[in-house]
Design a protein around this nucleic acid. Structure first.
Lengths: 238, 238
DNA sequence: CGGCTCTTTGACCTTGCTCAATTCGCGTGG
DNA sequence: CCACGCGAATTGAGCAAGGTCAAAGAGCCG
């Protein structure tokens, strides 16, 4: 699983043994159509899902139809590692486009935690990075304006996709409708639309279909106060 | 460390060996005055902090003085386990009142991940629960009204404090000013004040000094759509 | 061509923010 | 015991960001 290995080797070296374990873990695959649930709210999975290709979103439903997307996952992301440790899914994971997923049995993961300290620290690290992203989204959600927030999100996606060679840091695919983007930002569709127009008018981005392009990363970064520290893209022993 | 053990045994059994390891890990202590930093943004700690007594908050600073509190930690919370896995702190942890903290050396934690699979899964679980709380705050921040959000937060604190025997599920201490509460909710002080008044007028809560009392938990829960699933208060093998 | 989803626009409304004062609680020094 | 000072809570008034509703385009596929 190329993207997953890239995700890890960006942050630490992997031994041959560890690469073998990863291959074993990701052997079992399944595909999901766009807009279908990969993991359902309320379920207690017996395996964890790792994105092989395609994008997915973590969706929380609130009473009376309000929804919030709390995370967007790209190839190489271990989507619900935490289902290994938690009892019941308090939210769903939905395919944004058609995607392929590796189903990693929990007992295999448990074996890793028993016998492979370093690799299990790396998996743990992935959940820590996810948490860092949640924190950053919380900051954005409560303390940035809608335009700043949109810009921040696009900077983040550009970087995360660059790690897995799906972007040069400027152009990338993002298969999300403005409604989905609104759910991710905690904004209304209408407001997302107007925010994007503002970014376009400022010549900061273009967005046609699922093709996003950041025209001036430095300016977008400055506008949104984006600081990539939280993605921890640093290679060192962990 | 009583509260920490309660936090874990709420979710799984601990062996005698594991209890011993925990005692060893939490041997070294330090106290912090109210409003001082326990961990500083930008630093690369060599130990992780576990709250022994007192409350702390995870604070992110944004340009031009905006702040966001992304988490509130109570006794028994492992405040920055993730510093074991991440390179640099992208935020600070600040003491809300005067508190005592156990300093757990990273090399000790690393040994646990090498030799004690079950205990390291439990530590990992704690970071997964933290992440679940972040997700819930994201939902609250983007999709709940200010009053709902305040209610949700108070329900959460009541439950988390009950786990560590610091609350009967109704009354508890919460040493936060309305300004701090605003930073935690992503709201302005003025609005927090008005929201709390609304909760008081509806006879749902009282709050004097740092003494909070929930007068009608069921009603507050209903109002805020609080569902405790995400706290994963279920005892089973992990 | 028809139907579907997604984007865009306009008009209006509401929640929550800002600014500025005032009041309250409480500890301190006289 | 009382005046004073200080941080926190509270209030009022006006404003603005973002929400809602409704309709009109655009793009796409069968």
């Amino acid at each position: 699983m190329d993207e997953f290995v890239l995700n890890l080797t960006q942050r630490d070296a992997l031994s041959t043994l560890e690469r073998g374990l990863i291959a074993e873990m990701t052997a079992k695959r399944r595909t999901f159509d766009a807009k279908t649930d990969i993991v359902k709210q309320g379920s207690s999975p017996t395996h964890s899902c790792l994105m092989v290709s395609g994008y997915s979103a973590r969706v929380n439903l609130v009473a009376d139809g309000r929804r919030r997307i709390t995370a967007v996952h790209v190839p190489g992301d271990f989507v619900d590692l935490h289902s290994l440790l938690l009892s019941r899914m308090d939210h769903s994971v939905t395919a944004l486009n058609s995607c392929e997923v590796a189903l990693v049995p929990h007992n295999l993961l448990r074996q890793v935690t028993e016998n492979h300290g370093h690799l299990s620290r790396l998996l743990w690290m992935l959940t820590a990075i996810d948490a860092a992203i949640y924190r950053q989204w919380l900051v954005a959600s409560g303390r940035l304006s809608s335009v700043e927030q949109l810009g921040h999100f696009l900077c983040e996606m550009a970087l995360r996709l660059r790690v897995i060679d799906k972007s040069d840091g400027k152009a990338f695919r993002l298969p999300m409708s403005q409604a989905e983007l609104g759910d991710a930002m905690g904004l209304s569709v209408v407001h997302v639309n107007r925010g994007l127009q503002q970014l376009r008018r400022a010549n900061l981005i273009t967005w046609r279909g699922d093709a996003v392009q950041i025209l001036n990363f430095a300016a977008l970064q400055q506008l949104s106060g984006f600081d990539p520290t939280y993605l921890d893209l640093e290679r060192r022993e962990r």
